[in-house]
Nucleic acid binder design. Sequence first.
DNA 1: TAGATTGTTAATCGATTAACAATC
DNA 2: TAGATTGTTAATCGATTAACAATC
Lengths: 219, 219
Amino acid sequence: MAGRARIPEATVTRLPVYLRSLLELASDQVSTVSSERLAELSGVNAAKVRKDLSYLGSYGTRGVGYDVGFLVDQVGRELGTTRDWPVVIVGLGNLGRALANYHGFGTRGFRVAALVDADPALVGESIGELTVVSIDQLESVVGQGQVAVGIVATTAGSAQDVADRLVSAGVCSILNFAPVVLSVPSGVSLRNVDLSMELQVLTFYQHQAHPQHLGSASV
Amino acid sequence: MAGRARIPEATVTRLPVYLRSLLELASDQVSTVSSERLAELSGVNAAKVRKDLSYLGSYGTRGVGYDVGFLVDQVGRELGTTRDWPVVIVGLGNLGRALANYHGFGTRGFRVAALVDADPALVGESIGELTVVSIDQLESVVGQGQVAVGIVATTAGSAQDVADRLVSAGVCSILNFAPVVLSVPSGVSLRNVDLSMELQVLTFYQHQAHPQHLGSASV
DNA sequence: TAGATTGTTAATCGATTAACAATC
DNA sequence: TAGATTGTTAATCGATTAACAATC
Protein backbone atom coordinates (compact mmCIF):
# COMPACT_ATOMS: atom_id res chain seq x y z
CA MET A 1 0.00 0.00 0.00
CA ALA A 2 2.50 2.63 -1.18
CA GLY A 3 1.22 6.23 -0.96
CA ARG A 4 0.07 7.71 -4.24
CA ALA A 5 2.57 9.93 -6.00
CA ARG A 6 2.22 13.61 -5.24
CA ILE A 7 0.31 15.44 -7.95
CA PRO A 8 2.53 18.11 -9.52
CA GLU A 9 1.51 21.73 -9.11
CA ALA A 10 1.16 22.20 -12.86
CA THR A 11 -1.22 19.27 -13.04
CA VAL A 12 -3.31 20.61 -10.17
CA THR A 13 -3.85 23.89 -11.99
CA ARG A 14 -5.14 22.01 -15.04
CA LEU A 15 -7.62 19.76 -13.23
CA PRO A 16 -10.25 22.52 -13.02
CA VAL A 17 -9.87 23.08 -16.77
CA TYR A 18 -10.46 19.41 -17.47
CA LEU A 19 -13.41 19.38 -15.11
CA ARG A 20 -14.98 22.28 -16.95
CA SER A 21 -14.50 20.56 -20.30
CA LEU A 22 -15.91 17.32 -18.92
CA LEU A 23 -18.98 19.03 -17.50
CA GLU A 24 -19.57 20.62 -20.87
CA LEU A 25 -19.35 17.22 -22.55
CA ALA A 26 -21.69 15.74 -19.95
CA SER A 27 -24.26 18.46 -20.55
CA ASP A 28 -24.04 17.63 -24.27
CA GLN A 29 -24.86 14.00 -23.41
CA VAL A 30 -21.43 12.81 -24.56
CA SER A 31 -20.63 9.64 -22.66
CA THR A 32 -17.07 8.87 -23.76
CA VAL A 33 -14.12 11.09 -24.57
CA SER A 34 -10.61 10.45 -25.84
CA SER A 35 -7.56 12.22 -24.44
CA GLU A 36 -7.24 13.80 -27.89
CA ARG A 37 -10.69 15.40 -27.73
CA LEU A 38 -10.42 16.40 -24.07
CA ALA A 39 -7.07 17.99 -24.86
CA GLU A 40 -8.59 19.96 -27.72
CA LEU A 41 -11.44 21.22 -25.52
CA SER A 42 -9.00 22.16 -22.75
CA GLY A 43 -6.42 23.81 -24.95
CA VAL A 44 -3.58 21.43 -24.12
CA ASN A 45 -1.62 18.50 -25.55
CA ALA A 46 -3.14 14.98 -25.51
CA ALA A 47 -0.07 13.40 -23.91
CA LYS A 48 -0.36 15.93 -21.12
CA VAL A 49 -4.00 15.03 -20.52
CA ARG A 50 -3.15 11.35 -20.22
CA LYS A 51 -0.18 12.04 -17.97
CA ASP A 52 -2.21 14.38 -15.76
CA LEU A 53 -5.12 11.96 -15.44
CA SER A 54 -2.75 9.08 -14.73
CA TYR A 55 -1.81 10.79 -11.45
CA LEU A 56 -5.40 10.27 -10.29
CA GLY A 57 -5.59 6.64 -11.33
CA SER A 58 -6.10 4.42 -14.38
CA TYR A 59 -9.53 5.68 -15.23
CA GLY A 60 -9.49 5.22 -19.00
CA THR A 61 -10.05 2.21 -21.22
CA ARG A 62 -7.51 1.49 -23.94
CA GLY A 63 -9.00 1.61 -27.38
CA VAL A 64 -12.06 3.39 -26.02
CA GLY A 65 -11.27 6.49 -24.01
CA TYR A 66 -12.60 7.87 -20.74
CA ASP A 67 -16.15 7.62 -19.40
CA VAL A 68 -17.24 11.23 -19.02
CA GLY A 69 -19.51 10.78 -16.02
CA PHE A 70 -17.01 8.65 -14.17
CA LEU A 71 -14.19 11.09 -14.85
CA VAL A 72 -16.30 14.05 -13.70
CA ASP A 73 -16.79 12.20 -10.41
CA GLN A 74 -13.13 11.35 -10.01
CA VAL A 75 -11.74 14.77 -10.89
CA GLY A 76 -14.45 16.44 -8.80
CA ARG A 77 -13.65 14.20 -5.86
CA GLU A 78 -9.97 15.06 -6.18
CA LEU A 79 -10.73 18.79 -6.18
CA GLY A 80 -13.29 18.50 -3.43
CA THR A 81 -16.04 20.11 -5.48
CA THR A 82 -18.71 18.10 -3.69
CA ARG A 83 -17.82 19.74 -0.41
CA ASP A 84 -19.26 23.02 0.78
CA TRP A 85 -16.61 25.75 0.76
CA PRO A 86 -17.72 28.81 2.70
CA VAL A 87 -15.86 31.93 1.60
CA VAL A 88 -15.34 35.23 3.40
CA ILE A 89 -14.70 38.34 1.34
CA VAL A 90 -12.66 41.00 3.11
CA GLY A 91 -12.86 44.43 1.51
CA LEU A 92 -16.07 45.56 -0.20
CA GLY A 93 -14.76 48.06 -2.72
CA ASN A 94 -15.55 47.74 -6.42
CA LEU A 95 -13.93 44.37 -6.74
CA GLY A 96 -15.17 42.92 -3.46
CA ARG A 97 -18.73 43.92 -4.35
CA ALA A 98 -18.46 42.34 -7.75
CA LEU A 99 -17.22 39.13 -6.16
CA ALA A 100 -20.00 39.25 -3.57
CA ASN A 101 -22.57 39.46 -6.36
CA TYR A 102 -20.83 36.96 -8.60
CA HIS A 103 -22.99 33.89 -8.93
CA GLY A 104 -20.49 31.81 -10.86
CA PHE A 105 -19.00 30.91 -7.48
CA GLY A 106 -21.89 28.74 -6.49
CA THR A 107 -21.23 26.16 -9.16
CA ARG A 108 -18.34 24.30 -7.54
CA GLY A 109 -19.37 24.29 -3.92
CA PHE A 110 -18.20 27.82 -3.18
CA ARG A 111 -20.60 29.93 -1.16
CA VAL A 112 -20.03 33.47 0.01
CA ALA A 113 -20.67 33.14 3.73
CA ALA A 114 -19.56 36.52 5.08
CA LEU A 115 -18.60 40.03 4.01
CA VAL A 116 -16.15 42.02 6.10
CA ASP A 117 -14.88 45.60 5.82
CA ALA A 118 -12.96 48.00 8.03
CA ASP A 119 -14.94 51.05 6.90
CA PRO A 120 -17.70 51.84 9.46
CA ALA A 121 -19.68 53.46 6.66
CA LEU A 122 -20.01 50.10 4.92
CA VAL A 123 -20.77 48.01 7.99
CA GLY A 124 -24.45 47.11 8.07
CA GLU A 125 -24.93 47.57 4.34
CA SER A 126 -26.65 44.75 2.51
CA ILE A 127 -24.98 43.28 -0.55
CA GLY A 128 -26.91 40.48 -2.14
CA GLU A 129 -28.28 38.42 0.72
CA LEU A 130 -25.55 39.30 3.18
CA THR A 131 -24.77 42.20 5.47
CA VAL A 132 -21.30 43.67 5.76
CA VAL A 133 -19.82 43.16 9.22
CA SER A 134 -16.95 44.97 10.89
CA ILE A 135 -13.39 43.77 10.58
CA ASP A 136 -13.49 43.59 14.38
CA GLN A 137 -15.72 40.59 14.00
CA LEU A 138 -13.47 38.81 11.52
CA GLU A 139 -12.36 36.15 13.98
CA SER A 140 -15.85 35.42 15.23
CA VAL A 141 -17.29 35.27 11.70
CA VAL A 142 -14.58 32.90 10.58
CA GLY A 143 -15.00 30.74 13.64
CA GLN A 144 -18.79 30.61 13.49
CA GLY A 145 -19.14 30.06 9.78
CA GLN A 146 -16.34 27.53 9.56
CA VAL A 147 -14.96 29.63 6.75
CA ALA A 148 -12.59 27.70 4.51
CA VAL A 149 -11.36 30.35 2.12
CA GLY A 150 -10.53 34.01 2.61
CA ILE A 151 -10.64 36.43 -0.29
CA VAL A 152 -8.54 39.53 0.28
CA ALA A 153 -9.95 42.41 -1.76
CA THR A 154 -8.60 45.24 0.36
CA THR A 155 -6.05 47.89 -0.47
CA ALA A 156 -2.41 46.86 -0.65
CA GLY A 157 -1.75 48.54 2.69
CA SER A 158 -4.23 46.45 4.66
CA ALA A 159 -3.77 43.13 2.93
CA GLN A 160 -0.97 41.64 5.03
CA ASP A 161 -2.75 42.48 8.27
CA VAL A 162 -5.97 40.92 6.99
CA ALA A 163 -4.10 37.83 5.81
CA ASP A 164 -2.45 37.47 9.23
CA ARG A 165 -5.79 37.66 10.96
CA LEU A 166 -7.41 35.20 8.57
CA VAL A 167 -4.60 32.75 9.22
CA SER A 168 -4.80 33.24 12.99
CA ALA A 169 -8.51 32.57 12.82
CA GLY A 170 -7.85 29.25 11.10
CA VAL A 171 -8.30 30.00 7.40
CA CYS A 172 -5.74 28.05 5.38
CA SER A 173 -6.63 29.06 1.82
CA ILE A 174 -6.29 32.65 0.71
CA LEU A 175 -7.03 34.27 -2.62
CA ASN A 176 -5.37 37.66 -2.77
CA PHE A 177 -6.47 40.44 -5.10
CA ALA A 178 -4.41 43.16 -3.44
CA PRO A 179 -1.35 44.26 -5.40
CA VAL A 180 1.19 43.21 -2.81
CA VAL A 181 3.31 40.15 -2.00
CA LEU A 182 1.77 38.48 1.04
CA SER A 183 3.64 36.19 3.34
CA VAL A 184 1.83 33.31 4.96
CA PRO A 185 3.06 30.40 7.06
CA SER A 186 3.71 27.09 5.35
CA GLY A 187 0.59 25.01 5.38
CA VAL A 188 -1.46 27.96 4.18
CA SER A 189 -2.18 28.07 0.45
CA LEU A 190 -2.03 31.42 -1.25
CA ARG A 191 -2.88 32.41 -4.78
CA ASN A 192 -2.69 35.85 -6.26
CA VAL A 193 -4.79 37.56 -8.88
CA ASP A 194 -3.45 40.92 -9.98
CA LEU A 195 -5.19 42.60 -12.88
CA SER A 196 -2.55 45.23 -13.44
CA MET A 197 0.10 42.55 -13.54
CA GLU A 198 -1.79 40.46 -16.08
CA LEU A 199 -2.13 43.52 -18.28
CA GLN A 200 1.57 44.31 -17.99
CA VAL A 201 2.48 40.80 -19.11
CA LEU A 202 0.12 41.09 -22.08
CA THR A 203 1.43 44.43 -23.15
CA PHE A 204 5.02 43.29 -22.73
CA TYR A 205 4.52 41.05 -25.73
CA GLN A 206 2.68 43.71 -27.70
CA HIS A 207 5.38 46.23 -26.82
CA GLN A 208 8.14 43.86 -27.94
CA ALA A 209 6.32 43.18 -31.21
CA HIS A 210 5.55 46.81 -31.92
CA PRO A 211 7.85 49.08 -29.92
CA GLN A 212 6.76 52.66 -29.69
CA HIS A 213 8.41 54.71 -32.42
CA LEU A 214 9.28 58.06 -30.97
CA GLY A 215 11.49 59.40 -33.69
CA SER A 216 14.65 57.44 -32.87
CA ALA A 217 15.31 54.60 -35.28
CA SER A 218 17.45 52.53 -32.93
CA VAL A 219 19.17 52.77 -29.58
CA MET B 1 25.32 43.03 -33.06
CA ALA B 2 23.68 39.74 -32.12
CA GLY B 3 20.00 40.00 -31.18
CA ARG B 4 19.30 39.90 -27.47
CA ALA B 5 18.26 36.52 -26.10
CA ARG B 6 14.50 35.99 -25.88
CA ILE B 7 13.19 36.66 -22.39
CA PRO B 8 11.62 33.47 -20.96
CA GLU B 9 7.91 33.50 -20.23
CA ALA B 10 8.49 32.86 -16.54
CA THR B 11 10.77 35.87 -16.34
CA VAL B 12 8.23 38.08 -18.10
CA THR B 13 5.58 37.25 -15.52
CA ARG B 14 7.94 38.31 -12.74
CA LEU B 15 8.98 41.65 -14.21
CA PRO B 16 5.78 43.38 -13.02
CA VAL B 17 6.43 42.04 -9.52
CA TYR B 18 9.93 43.47 -9.51
CA LEU B 19 8.63 46.75 -10.87
CA ARG B 20 6.12 46.99 -8.04
CA SER B 21 8.82 46.29 -5.44
CA LEU B 22 11.14 48.83 -7.05
CA LEU B 23 8.47 51.53 -7.12
CA GLU B 24 7.83 50.89 -3.45
CA LEU B 25 11.55 51.28 -2.71
CA ALA B 26 11.67 54.44 -4.80
CA SER B 27 8.76 55.94 -2.88
CA ASP B 28 10.66 55.16 0.33
CA GLN B 29 13.62 57.13 -1.04
CA VAL B 30 15.79 54.01 -1.22
CA SER B 31 18.37 54.59 -3.93
CA THR B 32 20.17 51.25 -4.11
CA VAL B 33 18.96 47.68 -3.70
CA SER B 34 20.67 44.30 -3.67
CA SER B 35 19.27 41.26 -5.46
CA GLU B 36 18.87 39.75 -1.99
CA ARG B 37 16.59 42.55 -0.80
CA LEU B 38 14.66 42.82 -4.05
CA ALA B 39 14.10 39.08 -3.92
CA GLU B 40 12.77 39.31 -0.39
CA LEU B 41 10.35 42.09 -1.33
CA SER B 42 9.20 40.17 -4.40
CA GLY B 43 8.85 36.80 -2.75
CA VAL B 44 11.45 35.01 -4.86
CA ASN B 45 15.01 33.70 -4.75
CA ALA B 46 17.96 36.12 -5.13
CA ALA B 47 19.63 34.08 -7.86
CA LYS B 48 16.39 34.23 -9.81
CA VAL B 49 16.28 38.02 -9.53
CA ARG B 50 19.82 38.33 -10.86
CA LYS B 51 19.15 35.87 -13.67
CA ASP B 52 15.90 37.59 -14.62
CA LEU B 53 17.43 41.05 -14.62
CA SER B 54 20.42 39.82 -16.60
CA TYR B 55 18.07 39.18 -19.54
CA LEU B 56 17.45 42.93 -19.70
CA GLY B 57 21.12 43.90 -19.49
CA SER B 58 23.94 44.33 -17.01
CA TYR B 59 22.30 46.99 -14.94
CA GLY B 60 23.82 46.24 -11.55
CA THR B 61 27.14 47.15 -9.98
CA ARG B 62 29.16 44.36 -8.37
CA GLY B 63 29.74 44.95 -4.70
CA VAL B 64 27.01 47.62 -4.67
CA GLY B 65 23.70 46.44 -6.09
CA TYR B 66 21.17 48.03 -8.44
CA ASP B 67 20.26 51.69 -8.71
CA VAL B 68 16.55 51.76 -7.93
CA GLY B 69 15.61 54.67 -10.19
CA PHE B 70 17.59 53.35 -13.11
CA LEU B 71 16.13 49.87 -12.74
CA VAL B 72 12.59 51.27 -12.55
CA ASP B 73 13.25 52.97 -15.87
CA GLN B 74 14.72 49.88 -17.50
CA VAL B 75 12.08 47.42 -16.31
CA GLY B 76 9.34 49.94 -17.11
CA ARG B 77 10.75 50.47 -20.59
CA GLU B 78 10.82 46.73 -21.15
CA LEU B 79 7.18 46.38 -20.09
CA GLY B 80 6.11 49.46 -21.99
CA THR B 81 4.61 51.12 -18.93
CA THR B 82 5.41 54.56 -20.27
CA ARG B 83 3.11 54.00 -23.22
CA ASP B 84 -0.59 54.69 -23.20
CA TRP B 85 -2.56 51.45 -23.34
CA PRO B 86 -6.22 52.04 -24.14
CA VAL B 87 -8.42 49.18 -22.95
CA VAL B 88 -11.90 48.17 -24.05
CA ILE B 89 -14.07 46.22 -21.62
CA VAL B 90 -16.63 43.97 -23.24
CA GLY B 91 -19.43 42.83 -20.94
CA LEU B 92 -20.66 45.11 -18.18
CA GLY B 93 -21.99 42.64 -15.64
CA ASN B 94 -20.79 42.67 -12.04
CA LEU B 95 -17.20 42.04 -12.95
CA GLY B 96 -17.07 44.33 -15.98
CA ARG B 97 -18.51 47.17 -13.92
CA ALA B 98 -15.98 46.61 -11.17
CA LEU B 99 -13.19 46.70 -13.72
CA ALA B 100 -14.63 49.84 -15.31
CA ASN B 101 -14.58 51.56 -11.93
CA TYR B 102 -11.23 50.15 -10.90
CA HIS B 103 -8.74 52.96 -10.67
CA GLY B 104 -5.71 50.78 -10.04
CA PHE B 105 -5.52 50.39 -13.81
CA GLY B 106 -4.39 53.93 -14.39
CA THR B 107 -1.08 53.44 -12.65
CA ARG B 108 0.81 51.65 -15.41
CA GLY B 109 -0.45 53.39 -18.50
CA PHE B 110 -3.71 51.48 -18.74
CA ARG B 111 -6.77 53.55 -19.46
CA VAL B 112 -10.30 52.28 -19.93
CA ALA B 113 -11.20 53.79 -23.28
CA ALA B 114 -14.50 52.12 -24.10
CA LEU B 115 -17.26 49.98 -22.61
CA VAL B 116 -19.19 47.59 -24.81
CA ASP B 117 -22.17 45.34 -24.12
CA ALA B 118 -24.64 43.36 -26.20
CA ASP B 119 -27.59 44.08 -23.90
CA PRO B 120 -29.65 47.01 -25.32
CA ALA B 121 -30.79 47.76 -21.77
CA LEU B 122 -27.22 48.65 -20.80
CA VAL B 123 -26.33 50.64 -23.92
CA GLY B 124 -26.29 54.32 -23.14
CA GLU B 125 -25.74 53.82 -19.43
CA SER B 126 -22.96 55.84 -17.85
CA ILE B 127 -20.36 54.01 -15.80
CA GLY B 128 -17.69 56.26 -14.39
CA GLU B 129 -16.88 58.75 -17.11
CA LEU B 130 -17.84 56.49 -20.00
CA THR B 131 -21.03 55.46 -21.72
CA VAL B 132 -21.74 51.86 -22.66
CA VAL B 133 -21.95 51.38 -26.41
CA SER B 134 -23.51 48.55 -28.39
CA ILE B 135 -21.53 45.51 -29.39
CA ASP B 136 -22.47 46.47 -32.95
CA GLN B 137 -20.03 49.33 -32.62
CA LEU B 138 -17.18 47.17 -31.34
CA GLU B 139 -15.17 47.45 -34.54
CA SER B 140 -15.60 51.18 -34.87
CA VAL B 141 -14.75 51.79 -31.21
CA VAL B 142 -11.62 49.68 -31.46
CA GLY B 143 -10.60 51.34 -34.70
CA GLN B 144 -11.24 54.88 -33.51
CA GLY B 145 -9.73 54.54 -30.09
CA GLN B 146 -6.71 52.59 -31.24
CA VAL B 147 -7.57 50.10 -28.53
CA ALA B 148 -4.60 47.96 -27.54
CA VAL B 149 -6.13 45.53 -25.09
CA GLY B 150 -9.51 43.84 -24.95
CA ILE B 151 -10.95 42.62 -21.68
CA VAL B 152 -13.55 39.92 -22.13
CA ALA B 153 -15.96 39.96 -19.18
CA THR B 154 -18.93 38.39 -20.93
CA THR B 155 -20.62 35.07 -20.28
CA ALA B 156 -18.81 31.92 -21.40
CA GLY B 157 -21.21 31.57 -24.32
CA SER B 158 -20.35 34.91 -25.91
CA ALA B 159 -16.65 35.04 -25.16
CA GLN B 160 -15.28 33.31 -28.26
CA ASP B 161 -17.37 35.44 -30.58
CA VAL B 162 -16.25 38.60 -28.80
CA ALA B 163 -12.62 37.48 -28.94
CA ASP B 164 -12.90 36.78 -32.67
CA ARG B 165 -14.31 40.24 -33.28
CA LEU B 166 -11.66 41.91 -31.14
CA VAL B 167 -8.97 40.12 -33.09
CA SER B 168 -10.55 41.00 -36.45
CA ALA B 169 -10.67 44.62 -35.37
CA GLY B 170 -6.94 44.56 -34.69
CA VAL B 171 -6.66 43.94 -30.96
CA CYS B 172 -3.72 41.67 -30.25
CA SER B 173 -3.82 41.42 -26.45
CA ILE B 174 -6.79 39.85 -24.72
CA LEU B 175 -7.48 39.35 -21.03
CA ASN B 176 -10.25 36.81 -20.61
CA PHE B 177 -12.41 36.54 -17.50
CA ALA B 178 -14.99 34.22 -19.05
CA PRO B 179 -14.79 30.61 -17.85
CA VAL B 180 -14.02 29.11 -21.23
CA VAL B 181 -10.94 28.17 -23.29
CA LEU B 182 -10.59 30.77 -26.03
CA SER B 183 -8.71 30.17 -29.23
CA VAL B 184 -6.89 33.04 -30.85
CA PRO B 185 -4.51 33.16 -33.81
CA SER B 186 -0.79 33.11 -33.15
CA GLY B 187 0.48 36.63 -32.74
CA VAL B 188 -2.37 37.44 -30.38
CA SER B 189 -1.55 37.26 -26.66
CA LEU B 190 -4.15 35.79 -24.38
CA ARG B 191 -4.24 35.53 -20.63
CA ASN B 192 -6.99 34.06 -18.54
CA VAL B 193 -8.28 34.94 -15.11
CA ASP B 194 -10.81 32.50 -13.73
CA LEU B 195 -11.92 33.01 -10.16
CA SER B 196 -13.65 29.69 -9.81
CA MET B 197 -10.55 27.95 -11.09
CA GLU B 198 -8.27 29.75 -8.63
CA LEU B 199 -10.56 28.71 -5.80
CA GLN B 200 -10.59 25.10 -6.98
CA VAL B 201 -6.80 24.98 -6.98
CA LEU B 202 -6.71 26.44 -3.47
CA THR B 203 -9.25 24.03 -2.10
CA PHE B 204 -7.54 21.09 -3.79
CA TYR B 205 -4.70 21.54 -1.34
CA GLN B 206 -6.99 22.06 1.62
CA HIS B 207 -9.04 19.04 0.58
CA GLN B 208 -5.91 16.88 0.30
CA ALA B 209 -4.71 18.04 3.71
CA HIS B 210 -8.07 17.58 5.39
CA PRO B 211 -10.28 15.26 3.36
CA GLN B 212 -13.93 15.30 4.25
CA HIS B 213 -14.70 12.57 6.76
CA LEU B 214 -18.07 11.14 5.86
CA GLY B 215 -18.08 8.04 8.00
CA SER B 216 -15.83 5.84 5.85
CA ALA B 217 -12.33 5.49 7.21
CA SER B 218 -10.68 4.55 3.93
CA VAL B 219 -11.55 3.60 0.37
C1' DT C 1 -8.15 -9.87 -36.14
C1' DA C 2 -7.57 -4.84 -37.10
C1' DG C 3 -8.06 -0.44 -35.36
C1' DA C 4 -8.06 2.63 -31.63
C1' DT C 5 -6.46 4.57 -27.58
C1' DT C 6 -4.58 4.36 -22.99
C1' DG C 7 -0.74 4.37 -19.56
C1' DT C 8 4.01 4.82 -19.09
C1' DT C 9 8.67 5.28 -20.37
C1' DA C 10 12.34 7.91 -21.72
C1' DA C 11 13.96 11.79 -24.23
C1' DT C 12 13.73 16.54 -24.44
C1' DC C 13 13.08 20.91 -23.01
C1' DG C 14 13.05 24.76 -19.99
C1' DA C 15 13.31 26.79 -15.44
C1' DT C 16 15.54 27.07 -10.96
C1' DT C 17 19.32 27.63 -8.12
C1' DA C 18 23.96 26.86 -5.99
C1' DA C 19 28.34 28.26 -6.68
C1' DC C 20 31.93 31.23 -7.78
C1' DA C 21 34.93 34.15 -10.67
C1' DA C 22 34.71 38.90 -11.78
C1' DT C 23 34.81 43.27 -10.04
C1' DC C 24 33.11 47.29 -7.58
C1' DT D 1 43.13 45.47 0.59
C1' DA D 2 38.87 43.29 2.46
C1' DG D 3 34.16 42.89 1.96
C1' DA D 4 30.21 42.85 -0.80
C1' DT D 5 27.53 41.70 -4.59
C1' DT D 6 26.81 41.02 -9.45
C1' DG D 7 26.63 38.20 -13.75
C1' DT D 8 27.10 33.75 -15.45
C1' DT D 9 28.04 28.99 -15.51
C1' DA D 10 26.76 24.52 -14.74
C1' DA D 11 24.21 21.34 -12.01
C1' DT D 12 19.79 20.17 -10.68
C1' DC D 13 15.15 19.85 -10.84
C1' DG D 14 10.69 19.46 -12.80
C1' DA D 15 7.54 19.65 -16.66
C1' DT D 16 6.46 18.48 -21.41
C1' DT D 17 5.90 15.46 -25.01
C1' DA D 18 7.02 11.82 -28.52
C1' DA D 19 6.85 7.17 -28.84
C1' DC D 20 5.16 2.74 -28.18
C1' DA D 21 3.92 -1.53 -25.72
C1' DA D 22 -0.26 -2.91 -23.59
C1' DT D 23 -4.79 -3.89 -24.30
C1' DC D 24 -9.63 -2.88 -25.20
